[in-house]
Every structure is written in structure tokens, then in C-alpha cells.
């Protein structure tokens, strides 16, 4: 695995001057992914969403690699087409280089409107890495709920009201859905644990077939926390078991980070305005339910790891 020092000598794939919010984790995610991929020629695709919008405002692009943007729901199918053309042009001798393909999408473009395209692309086994920068809501359009939005989170379409305390449902487990497609590699990561993310990108790109990394990417305005806390919150999501870091390959689960003493979920929740209503008196049971669900899912993941370990 490349060290930070080695990475620092590579060309940046995503440069400055883009218009993401100060402290944006999604930009850090894409930057880290492209650095990790940067030792080989890479062509990227991206779904419409925050990162596409802030990085490609004509005539200014923050991308230092070829980037293909098509629409919101079709990052996976668009890159499928790029990869298909690559295969045939390579067969015909019109392309010489070995090129790797990375498709990016937010949770809106991946969990929801683009799920069908993602499913199709993995099933057809296009050799590409799909990276979901998951900021847990439709941040581009102003913080609306997605199926990645966690329980009780306030968004502008799952507002914390006087009767309903934010989103009523738990988030969809997209990583598991992808694993059910039997990809070559799948993982969860977050940019606070950058070395873990970088290692996973390298592994995914080396895998023989479609791969997927779901990257929890905290959102300053959407989650409601100070911009300097991005890395801290990214780490807290892992330390509180809210976002387990794990990977799946060859039918086996591996949890990459097992906190000896997990922090209470409230440590993660209390820093964010989207969960502020949970700390009003009378809502204690919601925090308890939330914690119980986090624990239940963690236990289930541990069992999966145990059941599939050699």
C-alpha cells in the first residue's frame, strides 16, 4: 500500500478552486480515491449531485483526469458504456494503455435513483470501481431525506416536527445489497480513516471485476456541525459503531476497525444539528432505540464476520 509520503508525490486528481463548502468531506473522499488510484491511468464518471456541480462549473473543472458526467441516475451505466468502448477499442489496438474506471455518485444517485443502474452494471460485471460518497441525504438540493438518511435525522423532507421526530426509518443497507450481487470487492470506508480508504481503493481496483466502496462523507451544512469537525465526526461514526469499517471479498467479511470500547452513539449525535431534537426531554427513548439498532447491526456484522472467517 502506498504511504502518505508516496501519495504526496503523485499528481492530484482533484485540484483546488472547486466550489464545495468549506470542510466538505465528499471532496476529500474523491481526492483521496483519485490519489490512491493515481499510479495508473484513470477515467472517472460522476452522477449529478453536489460534487459534480461544485467541481465542473464551466469553464472551470477541478478534475485532472478525464471525467464523464451524464445525468443523476446513470453514473454506473454511463461508465459501463465507457468501459465497453475501452474493451473493444483495446481489442482493435486503438488504445494501448491499461485504464481503470471509477464511477462516483452521492447517496441520492446511488442508493435511490441510480440503484437500478448500479445493480445492472455490477451484474454485467463491468470492471469498474463504484464509489458512493454517502452524505446521508440529498445535499445538493438542500438536505432532503434519502434512503441513506439515518433514523431520526432531521432533513427538509423528514423534518423534526412536533409530532414526528425526523426520519422514521432506518437507512437502507446498500453495502449489503451490493454484496448480494457478488461483486469482486465491496467495502465501507470514511475519509477520517484515510489510510483505510486508500488501501480499500487499491484493493478494489486490483480486484478482477466490479467493486464498490461506500464512503460515509460528513456534510457540514446538512448535518449541522462546525467545518473543522469533519474528520472528527467521520472518525466518531466509526468509533460509535454507527458506520462500521469493513470489507467483503471472496465470500468473507472482515471488520477493519473494532473499537475496544465503543463510544456511546450520543457522542456522534450531539455534535450535529440534524439530531438536536433528540436531546429534548421526552425524546430519551429515541436515542435508546437508535443506540439499540446500532448495536443490533454491529452484532449482526460480527456474526457475519465470524461465520465467514476461514
Amino acid at each position: 500500500m502506498a504511504t502518505l509520503k508516496e501519495l504526496s508525490k503523485r499528481k492530484e486528481g482533484l485540484v483546488g478552486g472547486h466550489r464545495a463548502c468549506a470542510g466538505c468531506a465528499a471532496s476529500a473522499t474523491i481526492r483521496q480515491v483519485l490519489l490512491a488510484a493515481g499510479d495508473k491511468p484513470t477515467v472517472a464518471g460522476i452522477a449529478t449531485g453536489c460534487m459534480e456541480v461544485v467541481t465542473t462549473i464551466f469553464p472551470y473543472t477541478a478534475w485532472n483526469v478525464n471525467l464523464v458526467h451524464n445525468a443523476f441516475e446513470n453514473s454506473a451505466s454511463t461508465v459501463s458504456g465507457v468501459e465497453a468502448a475501452y474493451k473493444v477499442l483495446k481489442r482493435k489496438g486503438k488504445i494501448k494503455d491499461d485504464i481503470q474506471f471509477i464511477a462516483f455518485g452521492g447517496d441520492g444517485g446511488t442508493y435511490d435513483i441510480g440503484l437500478q443502474a448500479l445493480s445492472g452494471a455490477i451484474e454485467r460485471r463491468h470492471k469498474m470501481l463504484y464509489v458512493c460518497y454517502d452524505n446521508e441525504a440529498y445535499m445538493n438540493t438542500g438536505y432532503q431525506r434519502s434512503s441513506a438518511t439515518p433514523y431520526c435525522a432531521h432533513t427538509t423532507t423528514s423534518p423534526a416536527g412536533t409530532k414526528i421526530p425526523g426520519k422514521a426509518q432506518w437507512r437502507k443497507d446498500l453495502t449489503e445489497i451490493v454484496i448480494a450481487h457478488d461483486p469482486a470487492y465491496a467495502a465501507q470506508a470514511t475519509p477520517g480513516y484515510y489510510m483505510d480508504l486508500i488501501r480499500k481503493v487499491e484493493k478494489a481496483l486490483a480486484a478482477d471485476g466490479p467493486s464498490f466502496i461506500n464512503v460515509l462523507s460528513p456534510c457540514v451544512p446538512g448535518w449541522g456541525y462546525p467545518s473543522d469537525q469533519t474528520v472528527n465526526i467521520s472518525k466518531l461514526a466509526v468509533e460509535t459503531l454507527f458506520w462500521p469499517l469493513y470489507e467483503w471479498q471472496d465470500d468473507s467479511y472482515k471488520i477493519n476497525m473494532k473499537p475496544r470500547e465503543p463510544k456511546p452513539l450520543v457522542d456522534f449525535l450531539k455534535l450535529q444539528a440534524r439530531f438536536r431534537h433528540l436531546f429534548k426531554s421526552g425524546n430519551e427513548h429515541l436515542v435508546e432505540e437508535f443506540q439499540a439498532e446500532v448495536n443490533r447491526r454491529w452484532e449482526a456484522l460480527l456474526r457475519k464476520e465470524q461465520a465467514t472467517s476461514a
Partner: peptide, 24 residues
């Protein structure tokens, strides 16, 4: 030809766009 049997017409034309941008 590289034939991509996609899962919908939306993806059909989306993949065509990707392949065409790739120079095919």
C-alpha cells in the same frame, strides 16, 4: 461489437453516451 445488454432503455442510452464520449 461490444454488446451491452443493459437493464433498461435509460441505461441503454446512458451507456451509449458513455461509449460515445469514450470515442466509440
Amino acid at each position: 461489437t461490444e454488446f451491452v445488454a443493459v437493464e433498461s432503455e435509460h441505461s441503454a442510452l446512458s451507456a451509449c453516451v458513455g461509449a460515445s464520449i469514450a470515442g466509440g
